[in-house]
């Protein structure tokens, strides 16, 4: 009778797999769904949720948005799990393009990174001419700085600024790399009353007591690009759908929506269209 047991297990396994695959059968027509992988800032700031219904209404496509730091967002393109990327890290984007994954890359909007910190500004960052100067002051005074440390666009930007002043803050007592998204990093910076580099949109949409000490310097421009993932690497990539989004974002209607986003709530736009 014992010899029957493995067979039972086998039968059960087969039944379970059949049942599982039955759940998986409800598939929509492929070309109507666009898998978009975005950086957290455009999602956490609410921009995508605001644009999505209008885009879907105008074109009949369905957007499925997943968001992660730019490094992880681009990785989804590399794995073939996204049709279009919406990211903001020039160095990481160029690497992706050099590997031959991209069909088209369209820079389409920008905003500014901001340096935020405790209201009393212990490092005296306010009034600096550049982000580099502000970082120098933070390092010189040893004021606590929280780094994303997650290979995101913001993290890459931060590293580039440290590099430009030839400082390597890793391991310093005043420097903490937390490996979290922008929202969590702001929460941590707020709890510790520390400085951090943030994109402006996420900062404004986030509830905290930190203050923007420096914004809109030349070295803090933050450009967002759309990258269509090439069908040459993944035959199933919905290039057509991705192109429809790229075309739609350039329409008067979309540009107007982007330019107006945040004005009612924060008194200023969160993103600006590129010409």
């Amino acid at each position: 009778m014992k010899s029957n047991n493995p067979r039972n297990i086998l039968i059960l396994t087969v039944i379970s797999i059949l049942l599982l695959s039955a759940v998986g059968c409800a598939q929509e027509p492929v070309n109507k769904v666009i898998r978009m992988s975005t950086t957290t800032s455009v999602n956490d700031s609410g921009l995508m949720a605001y644009l999505q219904p209008e885009f879907e209404k105008a074109t009949g496509y369905t957007l499925e948005i997943t968001s992660a730091g730019t490094g992880a967002a681009i990785e989804k393109g590399r794995m073939g799990d996204a049709d279009i990327l919406l990211v903001h890290s020039k160095s990481a984007e160029e690497e992706f393009i050099a590997e031959g994954f991209e069909e088209v890359r369209v820079p389409f909007m920008y905003n500014f990174f901001v340096i935020v910190g405790p209201a009393d500004d212990p490092a005296g960052v306010a009034g600096s001419a550049t982000a580099a100067e502000a970082f120098q002051k933070i390092a010189d005074t040893g004021s606590l700085f929280i780094s994303r440390g997650d290979d995101s666009g913001t993290n890459n930007k931060e590293n580039a600024i440290w590099k430009s002043i030839e400082r390597d803050p890793a391991g310093q007592t005043w420097y903490e790399s937390v490996g979290q998204g922008m929202g969590q990093t702001l929460t941590i910076a707020n709890e510790k009353q520390a400085y951090t580099l943030s994109d402006k949109a996420t900062f404004l949409a986030h509830d905290n007591s930190l203050v923007m000490h420096l914004e809109e310097t030349d070295d803090m421009k933050n450009t967002y690009s759309m990258i269509i993932v090439s069908a040459k690497r993944f035959a199933e990539s919905n290039v057509e759908g991705a192109q429809a989004f790229v075309d739609w974002i350039k329409t008067e209607q979309a540009r107007k929506m982007i330019a107006e986003y945040g004005v009612a709530e924060y008194g200023e736009p969160l993103f600006f269209n590129l010409d």
Partner: peptide
């Protein structure tokens, strides 16, 4: 699941997202 709105967003991932946005 990827926390896709209207598709795979569940209670726990929604809580995590709201926490990330500071909306405690």
């Amino acid at each position: 699941g990827g926390n896709v709105q209207f598709k795979t967003r569940v209670m726990t991932t929604a809580i995590m997202m709201q926490t990330n946005m500071g909306r405690f």
